[in-house]
Amino acid sequence: MPFLLSLLMSCIVSLVATIKSIGLSPELLHTWLGAWGISWMVAFPVVLVVLPVVRRLALLLVEGPSR
């Protein structure tokens, strides 16, 4: 799950950022793929480190009252 999550999120975010930065130009694909590769190399380890913390926080938010 962390692998696919980081892959898809970095894909979408880097595409949006690249389009915003250079527009729909002929260099878009090449520039975006380079940005995506770098983004994923950062995103995957970050997801592995942050996911346990996020899971605990989510449990605190959705846990019902204790008896």
Rank of each mutant, 00 (worst) to 15 (best):
Cys11Leu: 11
Cys11Ser: 14
Ile12Cys: 10
Ile12Trp: 04
Ile12Lys: 03
Ile12Arg: 03
Val13Lys: 03
Val13Ile: 15
Val13Tyr: 03
Val13His: 07
Val13Ser: 03
Val13Phe: 12
Ser14Tyr: 01
Leu15Ala: 15
Leu15Asn: 03
Leu15Tyr: 13
Leu15Phe: 14
Val16Trp: 11
Val16Met: 10
Val16Thr: 12
Val16Cys: 13
Val16Ser: 07
Val16Leu: 13
Ala17Leu: 14
Thr18Asn: 10
Thr18Ser: 14
Thr18Phe: 09
Thr18Tyr: 10
Thr18Asp: 07
Ile19Arg: 05
Lys20Gln: 10
Lys20Ala: 15
Ser21Pro: 00
Ser21Gln: 15
Ile22Asn: 11
Leu24His: 06
Leu24Trp: 15
Leu24Glu: 08
Leu24Gly: 00
Ser25Arg: 09
Ser25Val: 10
Ser25Lys: 09
Ser25Phe: 00
Pro26Val: 04
Pro26Arg: 03
Pro26Leu: 02
Glu27Val: 02
Glu27Asp: 15
Glu27Trp: 06
Glu27Ser: 14
Leu28Val: 05
Leu29Lys: 04
Leu29Asp: 04
His30Val: 07
His30Thr: 06
His30Pro: 00
His30Lys: 12
His30Ala: 10
His30Ile: 00
Thr31Gln: 08
Thr31Met: 01
Thr31Cys: 12
Trp32Tyr: 13
Trp32Gln: 11
Trp32Ala: 07
Trp32Leu: 06
Leu33Trp: 11
Leu33Gln: 13
Gly34Ile: 01
Gly34Lys: 15
Gly34Phe: 08
Gly34Cys: 08
Gly34His: 13
Ala35Gln: 11
Ala35Met: 03
Ala35Gly: 07
Trp36Gln: 11
Trp36Ser: 07
Trp36Glu: 08
Trp36Arg: 06
Trp36Phe: 15
Gly37Trp: 07
Gly37Glu: 03
Gly37Met: 09
Gly37Cys: 01
Ile38Trp: 08
Ile38Gly: 00
Ser39His: 07
Ser39Thr: 04
Trp40Leu: 12
Trp40Ser: 00
Val42Asp: 02
Val42Ile: 15
Ala43Asn: 02
Ala43Trp: 06
Ala43Lys: 09
Ala43Leu: 08
Ala43His: 02
Phe44His: 13
Phe44Cys: 11
Phe44Tyr: 15
Phe44Gln: 04
Phe44Ala: 09
